Amino acid sequence: MATWQTYKLGELIDVQNGFAFKSGDLQNTGTPVIKIKNIQPPNISLKEADYYPHELILKMEQFIVEKKDILISMTGSHVSQIASAVGKVGRYGFDKPALLNQRVGKLYSKDLNQLDNDFLYYLISRPEIQFELATNAGGSANQANISPQNIKDLEVEVPDLPAQKKIAEILSALDDKIELNRRMNQTLEQMAQTLFMQYFVDGIDADNLPEGWRVGSIGDLFTLQRGFDLPSTIRAGGNVPIFSASGLNGFHNEVMVKGPGITTGRSGIIGNVYYVDEDFWPLNTSLFIKEFKASTPLHSFYVLKHTDLKGLNTGSAVPTLNRNDVHSLEAIIPDRKTVLDFEEKVKLLFNKIRQNEKENQSLINLRDTLLPKLMSGEIDVMQTQTAGQYEEVLS
């Protein structure tokens, strides 16, 4: 049985603050700089990252971020807005080094013979830790700030090193499988994208089209329609996904559109396109495809993804997309056989993506259920050895 002890976290870890880069220091290429926006638990995202274009001189060494480093946001919202609250934790997963920006902290064990870094990641990423940090944060009404000392003052219970390593091994195995599925889905999505280009873009000349193809408009492929009102006050719990301009927006118990279907933003956010492989409810901030004419769901999905929807914005303060402007755009209308052949091949890829997403959700649920039980000692990790045993404990 593992032996647990109570510590102030500062007895076990240290916190490295980030560097105060100036906006003029950063460009579009070079070494990525990790800002608060890049912490997207449980990972670090380099999407929309800024880059330091200069050589990493000696004084920058302490701010280098390497693979598996644990990062935490030192600024954010107060506890009343927990989704964006201060204290978000992510782990850097890239082989190439990055740099730490101000108001991002790097956490690391002072002594790996006392505290395992992998265990530290799961210890500090628990929701109750973020809640405690956000509750005790200082700052203004609109912005919460924490200091390294706030983190070090946390009181935590930690088992002996063998138990730490075993707990981290179990949780890491789940996270590794989740990450493998995520990367596999990226590959499958790229394969689908490549197929669309091969079928309908590369080598296609509008003046010399294959037999049965013609030049028309997007309105010849499909018809877009505005989504439907559904105030939050009348939403009922269910498993029917609700889609807004920004994507999945909750669930309802009533179907408005039979899937599979396509939605995109109409107001507020435009340019994002979503494929929904089940029955759903599109909100009034979105457009959905009401009728597929010379197109099919996945063909339409990629047609819209390859259309500059943001360039059709008619709003000033609020981005707005008019469906008629989309309908009037020139488009290549392929023959039906080619479209159906593409749909069949890409559907197989999307089915695998969906399977991976479902498996990941099950793995995430298992991990999130195991995490507090392992961290509290409720499950004796030194006695429970197999995945089947863990499932038995949780059932």
Score class of each variant (00 low, 15 high):
residue 342 F to R: 12
residue 289 I to Y: 00
residue 276 V to S: 03
residue 289 I to S: 00
residue 363 L to W: 07
residue 302 Y to R: 04
residue 316 S to P: 08
residue 248 L to H: 11
residue 375 M to S: 03
residue 278 E to K: 10
residue 270 I to Y: 08
residue 281 W to C: 11
residue 341 D to H: 13
residue 303 V to C: 10
residue 357 E to C: 12
residue 271 G to H: 07
residue 383 Q to G: 08
residue 337 K to Q: 13
residue 381 V to G: 05
residue 296 T to H: 01
residue 273 V to Y: 06
residue 369 T to C: 11
residue 369 T to Q: 14
residue 304 L to H: 02
residue 262 I to M: 03
residue 365 N to Y: 13
residue 358 K to F: 08
residue 305 K to W: 03
residue 367 R to N: 04
residue 330 E to R: 08
residue 270 I to V: 12
residue 365 N to I: 11
residue 276 V to E: 02
residue 319 P to W: 07
residue 383 Q to E: 15
residue 358 K to Y: 12
residue 257 V to S: 02
residue 321 L to W: 10
residue 271 G to K: 07
residue 383 Q to W: 01
residue 353 I to M: 15
residue 279 D to Y: 09
residue 299 H to D: 00
residue 257 V to R: 01
residue 284 N to M: 10
residue 268 G to C: 09
residue 260 P to G: 03
residue 313 N to V: 02
residue 385 Q to A: 14
residue 265 G to C: 09
residue 285 T to L: 12
residue 326 V to E: 00
residue 284 N to R: 05
residue 342 F to Y: 08
residue 254 E to K: 09
residue 369 T to K: 06
residue 328 S to W: 02
residue 318 V to I: 15
residue 279 D to T: 10
residue 338 T to Q: 05
residue 308 D to T: 03
residue 311 G to F: 06
residue 269 I to Q: 14
residue 375 M to N: 06
residue 364 I to G: 07
residue 365 N to E: 15
residue 275 Y to F: 10
residue 339 V to A: 05
residue 310 K to R: 09
residue 351 N to S: 15
residue 284 N to W: 04
residue 276 V to N: 12
residue 371 L to K: 02
residue 314 T to H: 01
residue 314 T to M: 11
residue 283 L to V: 09
residue 332 I to K: 07
residue 284 N to F: 10
residue 355 Q to T: 15
residue 345 K to C: 04
residue 354 R to S: 15
residue 306 H to C: 10
residue 275 Y to S: 00
residue 291 E to C: 11
residue 382 M to W: 08
residue 361 Q to G: 11
residue 311 G to C: 08
residue 334 P to V: 00
residue 329 L to Q: 12
residue 379 I to R: 04
residue 357 E to S: 14
residue 306 H to W: 04
residue 265 G to I: 09
residue 310 K to H: 07
residue 301 F to I: 00
residue 318 V to N: 13
residue 302 Y to N: 03
residue 336 R to N: 10
residue 272 N to E: 14
residue 337 K to A: 14
residue 264 T to V: 04
residue 332 I to L: 06
residue 335 D to C: 08
residue 325 D to R: 03
residue 271 G to P: 08
residue 371 L to R: 02
residue 273 V to D: 05
residue 249 N to I: 01
residue 276 V to I: 15
residue 313 N to L: 01
residue 316 S to R: 05
residue 275 Y to P: 02
residue 324 N to M: 13
residue 359 E to H: 09
residue 323 R to V: 11
residue 352 K to P: 04
residue 309 L to P: 03
residue 275 Y to W: 05
residue 251 F to Y: 13
residue 328 S to E: 13
residue 340 L to C: 07
residue 352 K to S: 15
residue 301 F to P: 01
residue 351 N to G: 13
residue 298 L to W: 02
residue 354 R to I: 12
residue 368 D to W: 04
residue 322 N to D: 10
